[in-house]
């Protein structure tokens, strides 16, 4: 409560006058950072996407729209679509696997909560590339998973798991799961237990209490987690290249290839700009949904 009153007072004071130069000074590092690493690269990307290239692959700054026209070829559209599906599958699985984990952590006692949170973070201590290579040796035809399943006589012959859509989605889920668990955990932690008890008192069973009270109250965490998983998963290329073997290309892989071996930076830039627009639309849609659902809640 004390916090809130302090905030209120601060709010009325600050609201009455414009931000002075000290505020701008404090903001300066952020503004410089945004300008150098967000605005400038974006401008470069957009300019490149409207340019030509020469025979060695250098960018020639003369205006053309052909790169964008090429983007709408069915080949690239289907890759876009596949990448969205992979990312969507990864997000859904992350919610299904991550929610119970986050809920358990959030409801655990303070001591075990700390231990459980550390366990979630431990994989981050090694590079994701090393962890991905570990998966390759687990999933390959003569790898750990197959030899275990074979020796236990669960499967008749080795399963082909590497270099398939399965291994791509698995790689994405494995790498992005913590990004789902942590935001859900934050909202579970804040969940007011008396509301859950009230639901029970009013006659709700566990399932009803969960679906009508707990889920809506932790929904901001789920939304944040979904965004944190879905957006980077669409554009991811390292995991998908390593675990997909290049025969199930994703849009991130295609863009990376355009900048390297295909030597077509303008086309890669055009695909990149379209990807950014896609994200922008996602954010706008999600934002509008939130606003429209706010009054009814």
């Amino acid at each position: 409560m004390a916090d809130a009153t302090w905030l209120d007072r601060g709010g009325t004071h600050a609201g009455s006058r414009r931000a002075g130069w000290p505020a701008w000074l404090l903001l300066a590092p952020l503004l410089v950072w945004l300008g150098l690493f967000v605005l400038l690269p974006t401008i470069l990307l957009v300019v490149t996407s409207f340019s030509h290239r020469d025979e060695l692959g250098r960018v020639v700054y003369s205006f053309t729209t052909e790169n964008y026209l090429r983007c709408f070829d069915p080949t690239w559209l289907s890759i876009f679509w596949n990448s969205i599906l992979y990312a969507l599958a990864a997000t859904v699985i992350c919610v299904i696997v991550g929610y119970p984990a986050a809920y358990t952590i959030g409801r655990a006692g303070p001591k075990s909560r700390r231990i459980l949170l550390t366990l979630v973070m431990i994989p981050f201590w090694t590079s994701f590339l090393i962890r991905t290579y570990a998966w390759i040796s687990i999933l390959s035809q003569e790898g750990l998973a197959n030899s275990l399943l074979l020796s236990a006589h669960i499967i008749p012959g080795p399963l082909s798991m590497m270099y398939t859509p399965f291994s791509i989605v698995l790689g994405l889920v494995y790498n992005y799961l913590p990004f789902m668990i942590l935001p859900i955990y934050t909202s579970v932690e804040k969940l007011d237990n008396s509301l859950v008890e009230a639901a029970y008192d009013l006659g709700a069973g566990p399932l009803r209490a969960f679906s009508r009270v707990i889920i809506p109250l932790t929904q901001p965490g789920i939304a944040a987690g979904a965004l944190l998983v879905f957006v980077p998963a669409i554009a991811m290329y390292a995991i998908t290249t390593l675990m997909g073997g290049g025969s199930n290309p994703t849009i991130g892989e295609v863009i990376q290839n355009q900048f390297t071996r295909a030597r077509n930076q303008p086309f890669g830039a055009a695909l990149g700009v379209l990807l950014m627009l896609l994200f922008l639309v996602c954010f706008l849609v999600l934002g509008r949904k939130k606003n429209s659902s706010a009054p009814s809640a």
Binding site: W76, S247, V254, Q258, N264
Partner: peptide
């Protein structure tokens, strides 16, 4: 580059 990228991508 273009031919192979395209066929690889649409090879599914």
């Amino acid at each position: 580059d273009e031919l192979v990228t395209q066929i690889k991508a649409g090879g599914k």
